[in-house]
């Protein structure tokens, strides 16, 4: 199914939470482990602009549909950050821009070289790299949808669940964009398939790895993707990815869990 970019941009909006009764968190506060996962998700959403940067250095930045999407996507994700920050604020966890800046500053040299590496690589292979960018984005967005829905199920907190479902719904639209683009572009080019397979297999990591500490990545993975139910969700994401042209047999999400010793 084609993705209607005009319809997407026209209906893109910041996630709403003003109608939800957040004071409920004061009487029914969330447990420590959940706040830790929310904090992780909140930071990742705010850091979307860093991913935007990694993606813009590839030839994708000239495609009008892609840039239209990325403008809206970047803003929607920022608002997910704001919404989650509002939940955290009810628990007296304050996320401010200066602190986010400190996290970004801590990233150091690896981060500095990444866009250069991506640009060199992206420019050598040109157009084909847009496919990699798209399938990479799809994998991340599928993970996000799964994570938000899973947290909503796990926590069973009516206010939190409603907010997370709203966020997941927007993430699902991002999936639609990335997956449509990826399927088309991979379908057209054998070279793109080989490249995407290589990039995902060797370089993909759970959303947030590289920005957050390993301890935090492990906590969130264990919290949301651990156990039988969690593992089932991870397998579903892998199945989505494996259905892409040329990517059959890939199990990157489950491999990432195994590598971190997350129990099934």
């Amino acid at each position: 199914m084609a993705f209607d970019i005009d319809k997407y941009t026209e209906t893109s909006e910041k996630v709403a939470w003003q109608d939800l009764d957040f004071s409920d968190f004061r009487t029914n506060p969330l447990p420590e482990g959940t706040l830790r996962s929310l904090r992780y998700m909140c930071d990742i959403e705010y850091h979307t602009v860093c991913y935007l940067r990694d993606m813009l250095v590839t030839p994708s930045h000239k495609d009008e549909d892609v840039t239209a999407f990325m403008t809206m996507w970047n803003r929607e994700e920022f608002w997910h950050g704001e919404a989650l920050a509002a939940v955290l604020a009810e628990h007296d966890v304050i996320v401010d821009f200066d602190e986010l800046k400190a996290t970004r500053l801590k990233l150091g040299w690896k981060d500095r070289l990444d866009p250069v590496k991506q640009s060199l690589l992206g420019n050598i292979v040109g157009e084909g790299f847009i496919a990699v960018h798209m399938v990479w984005g799809a994998a991340n967005e599928w993970s996000a949808v799964a994570a938000y829905n899973r947290l909503a199920d796990l926590e069973q907190h009516p206010v939190l669940a409603e907010l997370l479902r709203r966020i997941a719904k927007q993430e699902a639209r991002h999936v639609a964009f990335y997956a449509t683009q990826a399927r088309e572009r991979l379908g057209r080019s054998k070279r793109a398939q080989v490249l995407a397979r290589f990039a995902l297999k060797n370089f993909w990591g759970p959303v947030g790895s590289g920005v957050m500490t390993d301890a935090e990545v492990k906590h969130v993975m264990g919290h949301l993707m651990g156990g039988t139910e969690g593992r089932r969700e991870a397998a579903k994401i892998d199945a989505h990815i494996a259905r892409m042209p040329g990517l059959d047999g890939l199990t990157i999400v489950q491999d990432a869990l195994d590598a971190r010793g997350i129990a099934a």
Partner: peptide
């Protein structure tokens, strides 16, 4: 804007969360 951000965000400007929040909107 995306072409502009492309050149801006590869620099330390992307670290400043207040500036990037502004540039997003």
């Amino acid at each position: 804007t995306m072409t502009y951000l492309r050149n801006v965000l590869v620099t330390p400007t992307h670290k400043d969360a207040r500036v990037t929040a502004f540039l997003t909107t």
